[in-house]
Design a protein around this nucleic acid. Structure first.
Lengths: 340, 340
DNA sequence: TTGAAAGCGGTACCAC
DNA sequence: GTGGTACCGCTTTCAA
C-alpha cells in the first residue's frame, strides 16, 4: 500500500493494535508484559521499513518537543558561537535539538523570540538576555519550563544563572596594572546597564579607588564597529598623553581600540598598555600580544546545558525550587601588551 | 473557566463554530465572506485573551513547520556563524525559525541530523555537506522539501547550490603571486575531497602549470589546531629555503601557518609571502597584514535564503524543477604579506 | 497480555 | 455565511 507509514499502518499490517505497537516502541513492553515474540515481530518490521515516529504528533500529545531554545546576543560573535557549539553538541548527545536566535540586544525582538519559542513548545531555554526582558523571563519561569540565564545576572529573575566573576576579574586585572606601575588607567566600556558590564566597571572603579587613583571611564555607545573605532579614536586623541594603560570591557571594543591605536601610531605597551576582557584568537597573534581576561567558554557551556538537562530530567514532583547561581572564574592571561 | 485556551474554547465562548474562528484567524474571512461584525468579535476576543495558536497542532495538520534546518560544518567558525546570523535574520523576517547543527564534517552525524530534521518536519534545508552524504541528500531532495547546498558543490545532487568561484579565485591569486615575481609557490590545503578544496587546488595547479612552474602541494590531515601547526611547521622546516610564497586553502590553515612561521622566525613577506583563502579579521590586524581571498558572506547567505524562501513560497503546481547553481565571486584583497 | 477509543489543537472538506 | 466533523499521528486510560 502506498500509504505513509504510521504507527497505525504498522499495527494494521501486523494485525495488532496501535496500543501494542506504541508500547513496544516506547520500551514499555516489559512493564506492560507484552510477549517477547510480539515485541520481536514489531521491532523487526519497524526495522525493515525504517519507521520513524512523527515527533510532531508525539509532541502535541505529550507536550514535550525535545527542543531547547538558545537565545544569544549575536551568534556571529566568537564567544557566543563557541558556546553555541558546545551546547549543541551536548544537547545532541542527550537527544535534544537546538533552535537558536540572536537578540542583537533588542528587547522587542527578544520578547518576540520567546513568544515564538513558547509557541514551538520548546522544553527549556538558555538565554543571554538584553535589558528590559526581566518581566518576560519571569513569566517564562512561572510556566513550568526550565530557564538558564547566561553571561548576565538578572537579580529579579527566578531562574538558574551561569556567569563569571566579572567584578573580581576586573578588580584583579586593574590591580595587576597598578602593581606594574601604571597610574593613569582608563576603562573603556559600553554604555550598558547589563549586569556583566556594571560589574566589570565596578571592579575597575573599586581597584582604582582602593589605590587612591583617579578613574577615567569612557562609555561607548552600542554601534557599528567603525563608529566605535571613531569614538575611541577621538577619546585617545584627547587623552593619549595622560593615559598609561587601558582596560577594555569586551573583546570587540578592544579590537576597535587596537585599530584606533594603530591609526594614531600609539605604541603598545610603550605608550599605552592594553588589557581586554574576553580573550580572542587575535590577541594571541597580534603584535604585541594582548593581555586578556579569558572566560571559561567550555565550562560556561557545560554548566548551562548540564543545569538545564538536570532540570529537564527531574520530574515535577521533586522539583527543587532553589535556583542556582553558578559563578565561574576567569583566567588572567598576561601577554606583551602589559609589560612595563 | 480554568481550561487552556484553544480555538475550541474560543468558539465555545463566543457561541460560534471552530471553523469560523479558524477562518478568521487565518485571514480567510474575506474569502469565506464572514461578516465584518463577527470577524471583529473574534479578533477582539482573541486580542483580549492574548491567544496564540498551537503551532504544533497546526504543523501536524498542515505538514508545515515554519522551520528551516541549517546544517553547517562548524558553527564556531566565523565564516559559518556569520552566514548563520545573516540567514537567521532574513528567515526570521519571513516568519521562519532556524534549527541548526554542526556536522564537524562527520558523515554519520550529518545523516543523523538529516533524519532528525525530517522527523521535525522542517520545511526546507540549507546544508554545508561533508563527504559521503550525496545519497542521503538526494533522498531528501526527492521528498518535496527544498534543499539548498552551500559552500560545496555536489555534482550528483539535484538541489540548488550557492558556491563561490573557487577555481578562478585561486588561479588568479596564484597568477598574482607569479606576476609579483614569486616562483616557488607552495599550496597548503586539507586532504579533503570536497569540491571547494579540489577546485582551489586545481586553480593553483593550473596557474602553476600555465606558467611552467613546479607545484609544491602539502596536504594537511583534518586535525586539531595544534596538530595542524606541527605538520605545517615540519613542512616549513624542510622547505623554507626554497619556498618563496605560500597559499593557504582556508583561513584556519593560514592561522596555523602564521603561528608556525612565527615560531620559526620566518619573516613575512621577506622570507615568504602569504595568501589565504577566506578573509578573517585577524588578517587585517596581523603584522604584516595578510593578503586574502575574501568570500562574499552576505551575498552567499542572501542567495541561499532567498532561493529557499522562493521555493517555499512557490506552490508545488508551478514547481520549476530546474535547480540553480549560483556561483559568486570572491574579492582579492592585497595586503602587506605579498609585497615583494 | 492486548485492544478500543478518547483526546492533544488545529484545518478544511462538505453540507446547509 | 456558518457549522459539523473527520483527520493529522501518537499516547494513554480503561476495559476486556
Amino acid at each position: 500500500m502506498g500509504k505513509r507509514i504510521s504507527i497505525n499502518s504498522i499495527a494494521k499490517h501486523l494485525g495488532i493494535s496501535t496500543t501494542t505497537v506504541s508500547f513496544v516502541l516506547n520500551g514499555k513492553a516489559q512493564e506492560k508484559r507484552i510477549s517477547e515474540k510480539l515485541v520481536k515481530k514489531v521491532m523487526d518490521y519497524v526495522e525493515e521499513i525504517d519507521y520513524k515516529p512523527n515527533s510532531l504528533a508525539r509532541s502535541l500529545r505529550t507536550g514535550k518537543s525535545n527542543i531547547i531554545g538558545l537565545i544569544v546576543e549575536d551568534i556571529s560573535f566568537p564567544f557566543f558561537s563557541s558556546i553555541a557549539k558546545e551546547i549543541e553538541e551536548k544537547a545532541y548527545k542527550n537527544g535534544y535539538k537546538i533552535i537558536y536566535s540572536s537578540t542583537e540586544n533588542n528587547t522587542a525582538k527578544t520578547k518576540d523570540l520567546i513568544d515564538m519559542y513558547q509557541d514551538k513548545h520548546v522544553d527549556g531555554y538558555i538565554i543571554v538576555p538584553p535589558e528590559g526582558v526581566e518581566e518576560k523571563i519571569n513569566e517564562l519561569c512561572s510556566s513550568e519550563k526550565p530557564v538558564v540565564i547566561l553571561d548576565r545576572y538578572l537579580s529579579d529573575v527566578q531562574a538558574d544563572h551561569v556567569v563569571v566573576n566579572n567584578y573580581e576579574s576586573v578588580y584583579n586585572a586593574t590591580q595587576y596594572l597598578i602593581d606594574q606601575g601604571f597610574k593613569n588607567i582608563a576603562f573603556i566600556t559600553l554604555n550598558s546597564l547589563q549586569s556583566q558590564m556594571i560589574d566589570r566597571l565596578s571592579g575597575y572603579e573599586q581597584a582604582i579607588q582602593d589605590n587612591g587613583l583617579i578613574p577615567i571611564v569612557k562609555e561607548i555607545a552600542q554601534a557599528e564597529s567603525i563608529e566605535r573605532q571613531k569614538y575611541i579614536s577621538a577619546f585617545l586623541q584627547r587623552k593619549a598623553d595622560s593615559i598609561e594603560a587601558i582596560l577594555f570591557s569586551t573583546n570587540y571594543l578592544c579590537v576597535s581600540g587596537l585599530r584606533a591605536m594603530k591609526d594614531l601610531h600609539l605604541d603598545i605597551p610603550k605608550n599605552i598598555a592594553v588589557v581586554s576582557f574576553d580573550d580572542y584568537e587575535l590577541f594571541e597573534m597580534y603584535s604585541p600580544t594582548i593581555t586578556s581576561i579569558a572566560q571559561p567558554i567550555e565550562s560556561i557551556s557545560e554548566n548551562a546545558i548540564n543545569l538545564l538537562l538536570a532540570r529537564l530530567k527531574k520530574k515535577e514532583a521533586d522539583t527543587d525550587k532553589i535556583k542556582q547561581k553558578i559563578v565561574l572564574s576567569t583566567t588572567f592571561i598576561v601577554r606583551e601588551s602589559t609589560s612595563q
